[in-house]
């Protein structure tokens, strides 16, 4: 018997499908979030599922390994910011405010967001690819068969690794950007280093530094939850791993920028 040709879904059906997929994704993420928060805090007292040094290993892989690229990109951004704003400020005889511009931009915005975007691309994609491959090769099923909760085993070390290393990397990023701005100020605009540093101290109260740290920890959590969720929910073979990794990076960057906007509203309203 010949089957009827498959009908293309209407626009309304497509919208319905997307909404359903979106809601399913939010539900999965919410469940994973609650489970992850439990395992990363109260669940720490659980049996010795993790091998000694699992969190330290993830810190090295996900955090320390990103240091060179974070430093390099932040220094380049600091350089560009200082060059562009330096020439504008020079016109008005306000060169000393170069320290304010570079410092505030790096600490409040560029440091946390740039570090998070780099880590989403580097560490988030690595987490998704690793976990998705584990799912495809039945390693996650093997964990379940040994009564090991995959969320406990996979999320806990990565959660703590990024929660600790991302703020440190953010601080390193801010320092690299500011030092690069200082170098531009001294070499191209004849600013004295001591004047630059004095202005910087006045321009950036500790409150801004803490806000940057809070943002960076939030971004770290978003990266971990989204990348683990994308990895654990993969279905299919090698192509599905690739798709999950791409989706992880896109979703992480979107979530980081959205969270940044929310924080801007909370901090500066």
């Amino acid at each position: 018997m010949q089957s009827a040709p498959k009908r293309e879904p209407s626009f309304a059906e497509q919208v319905g499908g997307w909404t359903q997929d979106g809601l399913r994704e939010i539900r999965t993420l919410a469940l994973l979030l609650s489970e992850s928060l439990y395992h990363s805090t109260l669940g720490l007292r659980k049996p010795k599922t993790l091998l000694p040094g699992a969190t330290a290993l993830q810190m090295m892989r996900l955090g320390s390994g990103a240091l060179p690229i974070v430093l390099m990109l932040s220094a380049l951004i600091g350089f560009t910011l200082a060059m562009q704003s330096g020439f504008q400020l020079q016109k008005y005889g306000a060169l000393i405010f170069l320290a304010d511009g570079v410092g505030m931009s790096m600490v409040m915005e560029i440091g946390p967001v740039m570090t998070a975007v780099i880590l989403a691309g580097r560490s988030g994609s690595a987490i998704t690819a690793e976990i998705a491959t584990m799912v495809v090769q039945e390693e996650v099923a093997a964990l379940r068969s040994m009564a090991i909760n995959p969320v406990h085993y996979l999320v806990l070390p990565r959660f703590w690794a990024l929660s600790v290393t991302q703020p440190l990397l953010t601080v390193a990023s801010c320092l690299a950007g500011i030092l690069s701005g200082l170098a531009v100020g001294v070499l191209f605009f004849q600013l004295s280093p001591s004047n630059f540093m004095d202005e910087l101290q006045q321009a950036i109260p500790m409150r801004y530094v803490w806000q940057g740290v809070i943002k960076s920890v939030t971004f770290a959590w978003l990266i971990v939850f989204i990348s683990v969720s994308k990895g654990l929910n993969v279905r299919g073979g090698a192509d599905a791993v690739g798709r999950a990794t791409t989706a992880c990076v896109v979703n992480c960057i979107f979530a980081i920028i959205l969270a940044d906007a929310v924080y801007s509203f909370i901090f500066y309203m």
């Binding site: 491959t133 584990m134 090769q137 039945e138 390693e139 099923a141 093997a142 964990l143 379940r144 068969s145 040994m146 009564a147």
Partner: peptide, 15 residues
């Protein structure tokens, strides 16, 4: 799971 063991198709060793 205490009284069962599973041998998966590809071994499924944690890589």
């Amino acid at each position: 799971f205490e009284n069962i063991g599973i041998l998966f198709q590809g071994g499924a060793l944690i890589s």
